[in-house]
């Protein structure tokens, strides 16, 4: 069984190798043909020709956090639904009723978020 997962490991390894090779080619040619000629203006942060002012790690909207937290709730919900969906033919109507209750509780939460305006973005 576990033997089936060996190709996945090999694929991850080969993918890493290939990506490193492509990036290495870029740096390699840069060194080999003297393409790399860095100077201060070229390496400064791109800001449409202006001198970059203040740090770019600025304050950002709290809604991004809110979206991330909501995501965790719903993604866990999906993680619970997958094993249920696979074994649906074995657990039958009782299983569907159980998940119905589970989904109902989450839908109540979803409606609450909606009414509270957590999903608004303007």
């Amino acid at each position: 069984m576990l033997q089936n997962y060996l190709p996945i490991l090999i694929f991850l390894g080969v993918a890493t190798g290939l990506s490193l090779l492509l990036l290495g080619l870029g740096f390699g040619f840069g060194a080999l043909f003297g393409i790399r000629k860095p100077y201060a203006e070229k390496q400064s942060t791109y800001e449409c020709g202006f001198e970059p002012f203040e740090d770019s790690r600025i304050k950002f909207d709290v809604r991004y956090y809110l979206v991330a937290i909501l995501f965790i709730v719903f993604d866990l919900e999906i993680a619970f639904l997958f094993p249920w969906a696979v074994s649906l033919s074995k657990i039958g109507a009782v299983g569907i009723a159980a998940v119905g209750i589970f989904l109902l509780i989450l839908v109540v939460g979803f409606i609450y978020e909606w009414k509270k305006g957590a999903l608004e973005w303007d």
């Binding site: 890493t16 990506s19 990036l23 790399r36 070229k42």
Partner: peptide, 26 residues
Amino acid sequence: EIILPTGSNKFLFILAPLLTAIPALA
């Protein structure tokens, strides 16, 4: 030329394209 901006975090700057490309292939 691959430009490495002065203000950037060099290690993460190089790591990011790898992290995008490896899952897409694997």
